[in-house]
Design a protein around this nucleic acid. Structure first.
Length: 476
RNA sequence: GCGCCUGUAGCUCAGCGGUAGAGCACUCGGCUUUUAACCGAUUGGUCGAAAGUUCAAAUCUUUCCAGGCGCACCA
């Protein structure tokens, strides 16, 4: 049977749910009520009664609420899931009250319900609530993918397009997807906690800017109507945070969304989240310490350990991270002693992919680092490091360039490159140079890709598995 | 942007010139303290879209749409 709702054809599965919805309404039941008070979460009950023996009953009445994931034997057994976990509900078809006999068959898998009853453990060892009352809290009109769990049964949906476009379905039926986002939330929380505990201050800087600076990347362009003015979405938070350091915020950071108008891949999403940290009166080597400690802290809090498995490869965060200069590394791998852009190219081509374990690569050529301070000893180099994990750049840091005259010249060099056809070269930021003229203390700065770090800590192959709603093409 | 691959029922997939299929889900009946419950019956499709070749197209060709992977770009 195919009928219609708001102009769209619907399947017989949806029609069946609509029929049940109407039957419920005819019974005087509001399928979308306003609130519900529960006494316990499922996981709390599982823990509280973990010592309850098989076949043992209690007189403890509890109230739970959640989504119906499965039912067996004409709603005799119901698997109910809430944010914490699951519990089984029981209602004997032979002895249940008439209203339940009429009401329960009008439910569907996926419906949100509340239930009240006494706790017991079945002969098979399943903690169960004997239903006394059931309340419909939200009727589902869409059929859900398979959500029955079992050893030989595949779970949920595997179609990645559906998973990304309709993440709510993915989250309902695929426990791993929910776990990834939970872990990401812990990761972000622990970064904040680690920095806040050391008196770093989080400050939000503009996303809309008249110029997109602080990185080499193509920006997104938008428009402000009232001002009739073109604006760019930020490609980095760097230049604003350093202005804050000029203003006296000696320890400052921002966790925020960055937008880069570039390709999409397994490790690139057009919008992604970075953290940038600026720490006055310190240099690159202090920042290396801070970064290593931050990563170890977060890894421990998220995974409960320091040795993790990523895509079948063990990654060990427990030992001191390797530290090697770009020149030494390139020489080690290729036997060549290079400088400048050639050094960086050789590094990217031959070395990056080999850096599986956490590795700080430092001392970068000045040509590719227009915001980093010149190396105190080595001509042609800057004080910069990048942290590589699983062959991927995960963090990037400098002894920040604080000399306004040098900074102006570096910007001018970038402008020349832009004129020469490099549309990703940095743009001139006169006000930033002016800020430096007011005095930026010696400062180290570090940026870290939250999404890529989250991939590592959730064992996700794709960046899209740690972004709730990744960028997708419009349909039709 | 380029190359390779994918798109069939709510979900997972088979079919690859000859009437559109399976398992699970849904619905109905049976049975009732299950653990993928079980037994039986039914229902369910513009085979991503359009055009072409053919007596005949899910299947072959072309174009388009969406997605995946790799390369390029990049963090």
């Amino acid at each position: 049977m195919v009928t219609e709702t708001h102009g769209q054809e619907i399947s017989h599965l949806q029609a069946e749910r609509l029929r049940k919805l109407n039957d419920l309404k005819a019974m005087g039941i509001n399928p979308y009520p306003y609130n519900f008070k529960r006494s316990d979460l499922c996981a709390e009950l599982q823990d509280k009664y973990k010592d309850l023996a098989n076949e043992e009953r209690t007189e403890d009445t509890v109230i739970v609420a959640g989504r119906v994931h499965n039912q067996r034997n004409d709603w005799m057994f119901i698997d109910l899931h809430d944010v914490s976990g699951r519990i089984q509900l029981f209602s004997d078809a032979k002895s249940r009250p008439e209203y339940l006999q009429n009401f329960l068959p009008l439910l569907d898998k996926g419906d949100i319900i509340g239930a009240k009853g006494k706790i017991r453990r079945t002969p098979r060892g399943e903690l169960t609530i004997d239903i006394e009352e059931v309340t419909l809290l939200s009727k589902t009109l869409q059929p859900l993918p398979e959500i029955i769990e079992g050893k030989n049964r595949r779970l949920g949906i595997t179609d990645v397009e559906t998973r990304y476009r309709q993440r709510y379905i993915d989250l309902i039926v695929n426990p791993q997807s929910k776990e990834n986002l939970k872990r990401r939330a812990i990761l972000v929380r622990e970064i904040r906690r680690f920095l806040d505990d050391q008196d770093f201050v989080e400050i939000e800087t503009p996303i809309l800017n008249t110029e997109a600076g602080g990185a080499a990347a193509r920006p997104f362009i938008t428009h402000h109507n009232a001002l009739d003015m073109g604006l760019y979405l930020r490609i980095a938070t760097e230049l604003h945070l350093k202005r804050l350091a000029v203003g006296g915020f000696e320890r400052v950071y921002e966790i925020g969304r960055i937008f880069r108008n570039e390709g999409i891949s397994i490790k690139h999403n057009p919008e992604f989240t970075s953290i940038e940290v600026y720490w006055a009166y310190t240099d690159l080597y202090d920042m290396m310490e801070l970064t290593e400690n931050l990563i170890k802290h977060v890894c421990h809090k998220v995974t409960n350990g320091l040795v993790i498995n990523y895509q079948g490869t063990e990654i060990d965060f427990s030992k001191p991270f390797r530290r090697v200069t770009m020149q030494d590394l390139v020489k080690e791998v290729t036997g060549k002693d290079l400088t400048g852009k050639a050094l960086n190219e050789a590094f990217e081509q031959h070395c990056e992919a080999t850096l599986i374990q956490p590795t700080f690569v430092y001392d970068y050529p000045v040509e590719i680092s227009p915001l980093a301070k010149k190396h105190r000893d080595k001509e042609g180099f800057v004080e910069r490091f990048e942290l590589f994990i699983y062959g991927r750049e995960t963090a990037n840091a400098f002894s920040e360039l604080t000399d306004p005259i040098d900074q102006k010249q570096r910007f001018l060099d970038q402008v020349q490159e832009r004129v020469g056809g490099d549309d990703e070269a940095h743009v001139m930021d006169e006000d930033f140079v002016t800020a430096l003229e007011y005095g930026l203390p010696p400062t180290s700065g570090m940026g870290l890709g939250i999404d890529r770090f989250a991939m590592i800590l959730t064992d996700s192959a794709s960046i899209r598995d740690v972004i709730a709603f990744p960028t997708m093409k419009k349909l039709n």
